[in-house]
């Protein structure tokens, strides 16, 4: 076989699992029996998230992000997490601010001043894979191949601060970018509906929900609503994720709060403004104390920090239902 020339390469750390190692994990550790996986957010994080884990999630803190699960990770004070973040909006600020995350693969790194300052101060390491690059890495992980090629990243500085490589395309002879497969330790997916075994439905666009569920060692689904398995069989076109990819199912109404859940409830803009205003460690600590540490779980958070009136109001404001069922 012809030796491939590596033309440009960043010398940075990256998460990689040999496809055979992942396949063996799937063979030995992923349950195929459609048993109930229903548990609390606390139990799911306790059981499936460890210090040092690589975590991905779908979509963002403003839209259908797994915010209840993120808050639970902070509450359980996980350490040294590495986040694979296509859209990391407030999640990265909170996870870095709480001392949970030390590395981020991006993506799009926003919002507010806190995360930008943390990067400038060297408190968190960031690698630039771009949105397309990360999505392709997860697809490679989902397809059981060690890498996938693409025709972007080429010529850009992202190549130097990621482990994307330029190689000679064996078919055309020209340069092509390759990115390594990504098999995260944990995927968090917040969905509209799930059954107890893990069949799940997302309505609307997503980043890489199915790819992340296929590619991840452990998959935690939180759902606005738990429905019967028979509902999936009646309308299989609407299934986003089949049960045997999923390890835990958490019933978490308002699980995307303060973000929106399309067609279920709107963004809480006041709360999001508060998140945007977290610029110092002092403000961050106060926010986390009030919204995470001082409440025992998601239910108590909704009950005592959000309140029934506000939830009713946010539901009422979700007036666009066309396309979401």
């Amino acid at each position: 076989m012809k030796e491939k020339e590596i033309r440009a390469e960043g010398n940075v750390e990256y998460r990689f699992t040999h496809p055979d190692d992942f396949r063996e994990h799937v063979r030995d550790r992923k349950g195929r029996n459609p048993a109930s996986k229903l548990c609390s957010a606390g139990e799911a994080v306790e059981t499936f998230v460890r210090d040092g884990d690589y975590i991905v999630y779908d979509f963002s803190s403003l839209t259908r992000g797994p915010q209840a699960l993120v808050r639970e990770v902070i509450r359980q004070r996980r350490k040294d997490l590495w986040i694979g973040a296509e859209f990391t909006l407030h999640e990265s600020s909170l996870l870095v601010g709480a001392g949970c995350a030390s590395r981020i693969d991006v993506g799009f790194l926003g919002y507010g001043n806190y995360i930008g300052r943390a990067v400038c101060a060297g408190r968190v390491r960031v690698y630039e894979w771009t949105n397309g690059g990360l999505a392709l890495r997860i697809l490679a992980g989902a397809r059981g191949v060690p890498f996938l090629p693409s025709r972007d990243l080429l010529g850009s500085d992202n190549m130097k601060v990621s482990a994307a490589r330029t190689i000679e395309d064996p078919y055309t002879g020209g340069p092509v970018c390759v990115v390594p497969a990504l098999n995260p330790d944990v995927a968090f997916l917040h969905v509209h509906q799930a059954d107890e075994t893990g069949n799940a439905r997302i309505f609307g666009t997503n980043l890489f929900a199915l790819e992340a569920a296929l590619a991840s060692f452990r998959v935690v689904v939180s759902a606005e609503e738990i429905i019967e398995t028979d509902e999936f069989r009646k309308d299989p076109m609407r299934t986003t994720i089949p049960f045997f990819l999923v390890d835990a199912v958490v019933h978490a109404p308002f699980g995307a709060y303060p973000g929106a859940m399309p067609a279920r409830y709107e963004i809480d803009l006041d709360h999001v403004d508060r998140l945007n205003s977290l610029d110092t460690d002092e403000r961050m600590r106060a926010y986390l104390e009030e919204n995470v540490y001082s409440v025992s779980d998601h239910e108590e958070f909704l009950d005592r920090r959000v309140g029934a009136k506000r939830m009713r109001d946010l539901r009422r404001r979700a007036t666009i239902v066309e396309g979401y069922r």
């Binding site: 991006v106 993506g107 972007d152 992202n158």
Partner: peptide
């Protein structure tokens, strides 16, 4: 759209980065 000043590891100002911008400009 990534950073200004300093080094990549410790820039003076940090922005959102590529997002999907690299793909848009490439394709």
């Amino acid at each position: 759209s990534t950073c200004l000043g300093g080094t990549f590891e410790k820039p003076e100002r940090r922005f959102a980065g590529s997002g999907g911008g690299n793909q848009v400009a490439s394709h």
